[in-house]
């Protein structure tokens, strides 16, 4: 029950934040969805946001999993996830309204680097440090720029800009929540109290994530098409 409440709070916080942030901005659109109703546009972008995490956003999935694995308390996971959400909402909003224009070729390798950092931190640190939430927040800002690049490519309809931005972000959130819930029910719920949880699960998985992230960092920096 407590688990659900926290998630609802996180979503409400995010939506309120987005509203407060974007109400007065101007924007232009690429796609023409003018004949769609607000509900249809909302559903399309909600789906796009969700599928950008599950199943398409492997890098974001690994980041969320890395956040998940260092903790065995859902409350802490929620706090980190909320910090991540608020952070990526800020840069996503700023980028979509044209205040910043993050270069994809810089943002994408840094996203990979952020995953590497969190995964290795999971290996070398047994306990969560207070600084972790700040680190997650900073990396959330970077991930938001990545979402913005995707959303720019997809395009936002002129007349439903705010709706599509909010629902895309909400879709991303739901995707992240889905990843956490899946990880919780598949692994955390059953094993996180076991004495071998860290040695047999957290460290090996974090090591795999770190290797993948290092590979991505190098590939995206030196070998991007």
């Amino acid at each position: 029950m407590r688990f659900n409440k926290n998630f609802v709070c996180a979503i409400v916080l995010l939506v309120l934040f987005q509203f407060a942030f974007v109400l007065n901005a101007n924007a232009h659109a690429i796609a023409d969805l003018s004949k769609f109703s607000r509900t249809d546009v909302g559903l399309i972008y909600l789906k796009l946001g969700f599928t950008h995490i599950l199943p398409l956003g492997l890098d974001h999935i690994l980041f969320v999993l890395s956040i998940f694995f260092l903790n065995n308390q859902l409350k802490t996971i929620i706090w980190q996830a909320t910090a991540f959400t608020v952070a990526h909402s800020i840069t996503l909003g700023l980028a979509m309204y044209g205040f910043i224009s993050p270069p994809t070729h810089i943002v994408e390798p840094i996203i990979a680097l952020s995953i590497m950092f969190i995964a290795i931190e999971n290996i070398i640190s047994e306990q969560l440090k207070p600084s972790r939430i700040i680190i997650v927040f900073v990396f959330g800002l970077i991930h938001g720029m990545g979402f913005a690049n995707v959303l720019t490519e997809l395009g936002l309809p002129h007349n439903q800009f705010l709706t599509s931005l909010l629902t895309f972000n909400l879709g991303v959130e739901l995707g992240q929540i889905a990843v956490i819930i899946l990880a919780w029910f598949l692994i955390g719920k059953w094993f996180n109290k076991k004495s071998w949880y860290r040695i047999r699960i957290v460290i090996p998985i974090s090591a795999i994530i770190a290797i993948i992230a290092i590979y991505w960092t190098i590939e995206r920096t030196f070998f991007a098409a």
């Binding site: 270069p103 810089i106 920096t221």
Partner: peptide
Amino acid sequence: LILLFSKKP
């Protein structure tokens, strides 16, 4: 390294 070597596609 990213800032130095990552090239615009």
